[in-house]
Each structure stands twice: as structure tokens, then as C-alpha cells.
Design a protein around this nucleic acid. Structure first.
Lengths: 337, 337
DNA sequence: CACTAAAATGGCAGCGCTGCCAAATACAGC
DNA sequence: GCTGTATTTGGCAGCGCTGCCATTTTAGTG
């Protein structure tokens, strides 16, 4: 930590003024070259680039953002990192953000809307260019901060409800409904459900609603359900199915709120000698790679999370009008139903 | 986008000056209250909080950071989001960062050191409080920027080499070596390897080196290997094992560079009727939940990535001296070896 | 009750950059 | 060569906040 000659001009940070002095040019000229904005001669450009390189100048965007009242930061708020959906979403968003030089500031709420509020408030303090948030459910204060800030907002992965500005995703309700129709078509009638606590994950709750609605329409009631507290995991899904089956409701199918749980359920069946799907059908949600390439591919719904991230990020930065963009999900009939 | 009365004082952003005027106090006093720094009376505090609330004031950290030459941003640069290791790392880092009010600016390199350089340079422009980067390998320019910037840096998940400042992780070489010893102890002799291209992922390459070194010491050569281009996935692992076995080298064990690949390999065996481990042993790396709770638990090495993230973030913010912190990995003998 | 130490507050320069405008220079056409 | 227009450049205010210091207020003491 006591380098003296490491890197060009180590220790003291180089400023625009120093660059301009060393180059014998005005600050504004240097600034224009660096931002490639406004006009300047080719020689000036070369001179600036050379000096910048010599001095190892790194522009201070903090000052830049303050002066120009705008940053290249995009705030992204997601519920979790333990569910592959959200890393995939980030990844997709990155595909749009990176080429344009935007940077992601990421916050994780743990499915807590209060925490979301706090995160958004503190991100707002950086005056980001835009916000990407998950879902349409927010606290009243979050909503008003977002609206009042004037920052563009994209709400992702859910189109069942009122959005603030841009909404990109699919109907969770319809996804649940499609899953129910699939199981009904396949002839299952004594169906159970396993998912996270409803108050935690509203998208999962909406899928459940869609699922149950379709069952009702066919005069069928959900036979049983088991709710899971905590993170999505194989382990939790496996244990939950065991508990569910132990109640002896003679189920012929179980709908899992996501593939992590579903894989756990499938594993429980394998271990317990329950034949899938002849004794019990299993259906998941999300279309995880591991489920799709398992020996017995999981019946699931492939969700377009990376596309949602990519589309949302690009639309929000393009500055178009508030819209709702539906991105299709796809039911994948595997070998577990 | 044309709200007029949404939120308190929508449209125009409220500044510190306005708050101070509304409260009948000086700007510095309000600032002190807001940062809970310096001294002020209880009444003043109450007054400020009330006015802030009424006006919906959100401090502008851009200005704050410029004035105080320091931000609450932490730059985190990871190679990928498709390998669970990195989301877990972020998650761990968040456990340390969040309570202290730090925010993560995240960049993904796709295992490209050139891209890492670009990302770090542009993050440096925000004058972050610290950097968390993965691995010890960087371009010369990245290194000198990092050193020259004076920002604290933690290099993660690898301790085999020279660090810049703080290093938190474990020896990838030793992890590979431990894996080799495990397979040798179990009596396997014709061992194959499946992993990503060596130039892409240096940590994976180091594990491979450690693995091969131990084999050599026992006079055993690696029987065969198959390298994979692209993302870690079940699909890729499954296909790679198929290709590897097709070459007819009569392997009795395969060491996979990570659990995603290994699960794919395991699936290939199940589908092809290859009995595991009697005909072929399979070993992975990372200790994924899904492998550990599979009917036939995967032999793997559990890596402490979340702890690494957490420890690194807390140490780097505490401001202690440069150190190397070793966090233990654990070999988990499953049922596939 | 004057007198000092401590607590609370206000004023103001300046962080490093950008936006605006004016000045200087280059390039036309006649 | 000279005026008119386009292109390059420089100067400077100010973005909103913090750090420092001076000032005022309050509490404490003999």
C-alpha cells in the first residue's frame, strides 16, 4: 500500500484540469474529446488521448454525474440470488446494458417489500438512469418515490396488474393456468401443490391462483398442499414432498412452484420407489437446464427471464413510452407427467 | 410520465438547501443530522427529520461523494452468473455490505480478462470504496489501475499466487489435489477429466494441475480428457461424457471441473445404463445443493464461496492490512465414487 | 455572576466535471 | 482581400453536498 512509482502518477489522482494543462488545451476541449461530443480536430483528439494515456487519467464520473445531472448507473432490484431466475435476469439485462456502457447497481430484497423500499431509496440517491425491479407489488412509499423521482422504471416478470411505467414479463396467472390444464389433460385429478409461503413470493402466489382457478373450472379442488418457508432448494422440495405424501391424500400429481423444489420432489420419488409419472406425476416451473437434461426430463414451464431482462433494459434506455410487453413462456411436456 | 401531484413535491428534486430553508436551519446542520455525524440537539434532529419527510427529500449521494471524495459503492467483478458459485459469492458479500449501507456495482466478465480491465476502469470512475474481484490473474493494466487508484482490493476464491492487497479464498491447486487423492484412495486408476477450456477459467485450470500432480506422484497419468467450450451446464457435461467414453479408453472414474458438468455426466450414465460407481465413478466440484440431495449423492468438494464473499467484504471495509485469508473447502464423499 | 469549556450551529470554499456562451480560428464565395 | 459562415476552442458558473472554521449558545464552575 505504499507504492511510489506504480502506475503512471500513482498516489495523487489525476484530474481533468491537469490533463488539460499538460495538453495545453482548455478543460472543455478535453472533456469534449473524452466524451466524443461536440466538435474538435483530429490532432486535438490525438493529443488528448496521448496525454490521458501518459498520465493514466481516469475520469471522475461522480463529478460528471453531478454536473450533468445524469449517471450511467442502472439500479436493479431482485428478490434473491438463490433462484436461478434472477441471475439469468441480470445476465439478460447485462446484454443490453454493457454495450451502452451502463453499469448495474444491484440490490437483493429477500422477498421483503420493506427492504425493497430501503434499497430503492438508497439507490435513488445515486440518481440512476433507470430502475429495473421485479414484480408489480411494492409498498406505497416505493411507488411514490419511484414516480416522484422521474426515473424510468421497468417492472419485470409479471404482467398481472398495474405497472408504474414499463412492464416486461408474462402473466404468472396464465402460466399457472396452463400448468393446470396440462395436468388435467393428462388425466390427473388428485393434485397437490408445493411452493413457498404465499405472502413471500407474490408471483408464485399468482401462479397458484391461476392453477387453482383452472382446476375449479373443471370442478376439481386442490387435493392438498404444503408450503415451504425459506429458500428454494432441492433439499426443501424433497422434504416437502415427503411431508405431503405422508398425509396420505392419495395424490396422483404434484405441481411445484419451481424446478428446484420439483427436482427435490423427483428425487424423493426415486428414493422412495414411487414411480413417476405412473404413481405420481411431477410438474415444475422455470425450465432449469438440469431438469430438462435429466434422464427423465421434468415437465415444466420455460420462462423467458433472460429475454425479459434484455428487452426491459433496452426499452427503458431507449426512452419509449410506458408500455406492457408480453414475452411468451413455453410449457415443456417432459417425462414426469 | 406527466405526474403533477404524485409524491411530495414531484417533478423538481428537493435539495439540501431547500430542506434547510424549510427547517430554518443551516445546510451544514441538516447535513450533520442526516449523516448522524457531529453534534446537534434532539429537537433539531426531530425538526430535520420531519421536514425531510414532508418534502420527500432524497439526499444526492453524487454530490456527497464528490464533496467528501468517497462513496458507499463497492465494485464487484465476477466471471459469470451462470455458475452458482458467483451468485453465492455476491450473496455472501451482501451479508457484509448491506448492514453497513454499501451498495454493489456488479460487472460480469465472461471469463475475459480484457473485459475485466474495461469493467474495472469504468467502475473506478465512480471512485468505489473497495473492489472485489475474482482470482489472481489480471492484465498488467488492470493491476496497475487497481494499485494506482489507491482503492482497497480483495481478490477472491484463489490463493495460489501473488495478490495485490487482500486475498480471500482457498487453494484451487489443493482442492484438485484432494480430489485426486480421494479417487486414488478409492482405487480408481484409469481416470478422465472433463472441464472448461484451460485458458478460459484459470481456477479450474489450477484444480486440474493439482489433480494431475497428485496422479503423477502415484505414477499415474490422466487417461483421457475432454474440454468444453462455453457455459457450465448439465447439457454440456452430459454430451462431454458421452464423447469421452466414446473414445473407448476404458475409464473407471471421471473428474469433472464442476457439479453442473458432473450432474450431466451422471445423467448420461443413468441413461446409458452405466452403473455408478461400479462401472464408472463420478466426482464433481462445488457442492451444489442438487448434487448433495440427489438419490445418489454426488461426490464433490464443497466450496465456501458465500463465506469468502462475506469475509472479504467485511475485511476490506474494516481497513486492516493486506493479508491472505484461507477459508477451508470440504471434500464430500458421496455415492458416486 | 463573571468566566471557561463544551455543544450546537452557520458560512463558505471547493470537490471535478459539464453546459452554455463567447472568442478565435478556419474556410468559403465574391 | 474581405465579409459571412462553420468549425474549434476557452472561460466560467454552478451541480449539491461536505469539511473546515468561526460564531453563537448552553452548561458548568468557583
Amino acid at each position: 500500500m505504499s507504492e511510489t512509482t506504480r502506475g503512471p502518477k500513482a498516489g495523487k489522482t489525476v484530474t481533468l484540469r491537469e490533463v488539460s494543462e499538460a495538453a495545453g488545451l482548455g478543460m472543455s476541449t478535453v472533456s469534449r474529446v473524452l466524451r466524443n461530443h461536440g466538435s474538435f480536430s483530429a490532432e486535438t483528439r490525438a493529443r488528448v488521448i496521448q496525454v490521458v494515456d501518459e498520465l493514466g487519467y481516469v475520469p471522475n464520473r461522480v463529478a460528471g454525474a453531478l454536473a450533468s445531472a445524469g449517471s450511467n448507473l442502472v439500479g436493479i432490484v431482485i428478490p434473491s440470488l438463490h433462484n436461478i431466475v434472477f441471475p439469468d435476469l441480470l445476465s439478460g439485462a447485462g446484454r443490453s446494458l454493457d454495450p451502452l456502457g451502463y453499469q448495474s447497481v444491484i440490490g437483493v430484497t429477500d422477498y421483503d417489500l420493506g427492504r425493497e423500499e430501503v434499497l430503492i431509496q438508497s439507490m435513488l440517491a445515486w440518481r440512476p438512469a433507470a430502475f429495473l425491479v421485479v414484480g408489480l407489488e411494492h409498498t406505497e412509499k416505493t411507488r411514490s418515490m419511484l414516480v416522484g423521482s422521474g426515473v424510468r422504471v421497468a417492472e419485470l416478470l409479471d404482467t398481472d396488474g398495474e405497472g408504474i411505467d414499463l412492464v416486461v414479463g408474462f402473466s404468472q396467472h396464465k402460466a399457472g393456468a396452463a400448468s393446470a390444464r396440462h395436468l388435467l389433460e393428462k388425466g390427473y385429478r388428485r393434485i397437490g401443490y408445493i411452493g413457498p409461503a404465499f405472502d413471500a413470493d407474490s408471483r408464485s402466489a399468482k401462479r397458484y391462483e391461476g392453477f387453482r382457478t383452472v382446476l375449479s373450472q373443471s370442478g376439481i379442488a386442490l387435493a392438498d398442499m404444503e408450503l415451504i418457508a425459506g429458500t428454494s432448494s432441492t433439499e426443501a422440495g424433497r422434504a416437502a414432498l415427503e411431508r405431503l405424501l405422508a398425509r396420505g391424500k392419495k395424490l396422483d400429481a404434484v405441481y411445484f412452484s419451481n424446478d428446484d423444489f420439483a427436482m427435490g420432489g423427483l428425487f424423493h420419488c426415486i428414493v422412495s420407489g414411487i414411480s413417476v409419472p405412473s404413481q405420481l406425476a411431477i410438474m415444475g416451473f422455470n425450465g432449469l437446464d438440469i431438469g430438462r437434461f435429466a434422464p427423465q426430463p421434468l415437465t415444466t414451464v420455460m420462462t423467458p427471464r433472460a429475454e425479459v431482462g434484455e428487452i426491459a433494459a433496452s426499452l427503458i434506455l431507449e426512452g419509449g413510452p410506458p408500455t406492457v410487453v408480453e414475452v411468451a413462456f413455453e410449457l415443456i411436456a417432459g417425462a414426469t407427467s
